[in-house]
Design a protein around this nucleic acid. Structure first.
Lengths: 348, 348
DNA sequence: CTGTTAGCGCGTTCAC
DNA sequence: GTGAACGCGCTAACAG
């Protein structure tokens, strides 16, 4: 059995209350210098560490925060977006000496027991929810519960719900405008899983909005419903190429699908960007020189963690929502540099 | 305040003991059918969830396992090796309905308080330790404590210490032999941080061993001490190219450094593999067509998790150590296919 | 300055 | 079949 506060008290010849005061440095000015010294020595000698369970039971604080993320096929941290967000979270709570409790949630089985148990068990002081599905019982459970939480990459029309997100709409608008400036008019779009990702939905809306605004025809067949996998990006390409009126550019809702699209195009003997421009979203590491929209995922994780921490520690909240700017990163696959080079050639 | 067992008992007109029996399905045959039904209904109606802290305090079980990993500059899950191992761990404990508690440990500050607290606080039922430093107070604390643990990617000469690892030595031997078969004799090596990574150390030893065994001269200057970053791979190349007696092939202790080496070689106008063959270790996703050694990281995480679980649940342990085979994955950067193509050309 | 004590929510023993 | 009561280790209110 581990050393308890009682053991320490006994050995020091004091009461447990005094030991507790020393351990927690609370009301420490009330403890005699000598007593404190003696207790501190015995603490080390015995190798005492407070039992988190007992302490948590009493104080209702655990210094744990839960991180929930969602998956289809299998839980995976290998996703660059996810691991970057998590890195931000880890960075913040590393400083604060909190523990991170990971919990994953299958979108297939949708077993609520897993997270309701997590929400209500008193195991964590708060919850960080990464990219939850658009509609879910989850939110109701969350709102009903007393546990503080912050949503990541999921904006919601509710003053009271804390979240961080990037400016998805702006990112897509920038991309479309950039492609238009390169002369494209027939711009196709590969969507994500719109029922499961608010980001995906917001980006799709943005695409429709800006196409219309720019006077470009929005056509059903120019939107393909993908699922965030490279494979679905490839399927989108196959579908687009079958059209009578083929697109000259493709925007993918995320980089994975953009990568899949490029691979398929090349497999079919088409060149990117000469024969087809391709743009992505997220700016994940890749050697394909993808033109894409960058979002500050690490910072978003960090700030979400901070917002949650403020709630937990009852600090005044500076803001309930936090939007991070996106940035269009122009590389090779949109054809910008190709066009530039061609223009230069013509001059000569 | 959350619903407690007392609330349920009151509403059901029974004692807390009876409710407890129903909740835990323990001695359930002693509870009357009707009583059970009634309690179960009220349980749902009230939305009761047992308090983990109280339960943990009583039972000494938390259904949490801790995962510890180590870092230099900042904690990062973006490392493909790490995220893959974690995926394996998540996959296993997802099935078992355990929670994962992440804790990171800085190799710079080496503050032991962080993990000793973690070890002794009763917060977790066991510990998974990923790629710990070669020598550390950590191990002593671990051995002294009563907490079950399993080491990942760290083999140790101790029957009682559980670990999983891949056959690092075999991986390096395969690589060297493969390069020799392609005609290479001057094979340089980029090492990792040998004080902090047992894998790195084991691989270096393997390199020295096989070079000697094959009658190839081992020269100090042919080994460069890197730090697992692409940058250090680049520096290694710079150093090797300054030598009078330049290598014709480079083996890197991990893929990151191999990638860095290739980038630097190309930057300097050298071709890979024509002018220099390069091989890595780990088989991380990359578009460089790297010849490398694959290790089943996901499976290793999964099996380590299983070993720990067996300990926690007091099941008989099948084995304390588990070694996973490596597999040389021959792609472009070693020059194998180049040679093959050349040979074919000559025939004609 | 220090000690006594109640009680956090739960599981479990023992009595009925 | 069921309930009363104890104690897990700790913090905090109160007493002295």
């Amino acid at each position: 059995m581990a050393i308890t506060i009682k053991d320490v008290a006994q050995k020091a010849g004091v009461s447990v209350a005094t030991v507790s005061r020393v351990v927690n440095q609370k009301d420490i000015h009330k403890v005699g210098q000598k007593t404190q010294k003696r207790i501190e020595e015995i603490l080390k000698e015995l190798g005492y560490y407070p039992n988190t369970m007992a302490r948590g039971l009493k104080t209702r604080r655990t210094y744990n925060v839960g991180v929930v993320f969602f998956w289809f096929d299998k839980p995976s941290l290998s996703d660059p977006y996810l691991s970057s967000v998590l890195d931000g979270i880890l960075a913040f709570y590393g400083e604060k000496n909190y523990n991170i409790l990971m919990n994953t949630f299958s979108l297939k089985t949708q077993n609520p027991g897993i997270y309701t148990n997590f929400i209500n068990s008193g195991l964590v002081d708060g919850l960080l929810v990464i990219a939850p599905p658009v509609e879910s019982q989850f939110f109701q459970d969350l709102k009903q519960g007393a546990l503080p939480y912050v949503l990541i990459s999921h904006q919601v029309n509710d003053k009271d719900v804390c979240f961080v997100d990037c400016l998805n709409t702006q990112g897509i608008i920038d991309t479309v405008e950039h492609l238009i400036s390169l002369g494209h008019k027939k711009i196709a779009y590969i969507s994500g899983r719109n029922e499961y990702s608010k980001n995906s939905l917001d980006r799709l809306h943005a695409y429709k909005y800006i196409m219309k605004k720019k006077g470009l025809p929005y056509r059903e067949e120019m939107v393909f419903d993908g699922d965030f996998t490279p494979e679905s990006g490839g399927k989108a390409v196959d579908a687009f190429l079958k059209l009578k009126n083929k697109p000259t550019a493709i925007i993918a809702c995320d980089d994975s699908m953009a990568v899949g699209a490029i691979r398929e195009l090349r497999r079919l003997g088409l060149r990117v960007p000469e024969d087809m421009a391709v743009c992505g979203f997220d700016d994940i590491p890749s050697d394909l020189n993808l033109t894409t929209v960058h979002q500050p995922t690490h910072q978003m994780g960090y700030e979400a963690a901070k917002m949650l921490w403020n709630q937990i520690e009852k600090k005044p909240l500076e803001y309930a929502h936090r939007f991070f700017p996106t940035r269009l990163v122009v590389r090779e696959t949109c054809g910008f540099y190709l066009k530039k080079a061609n223009a230069k050639d013509k001059k000569h």
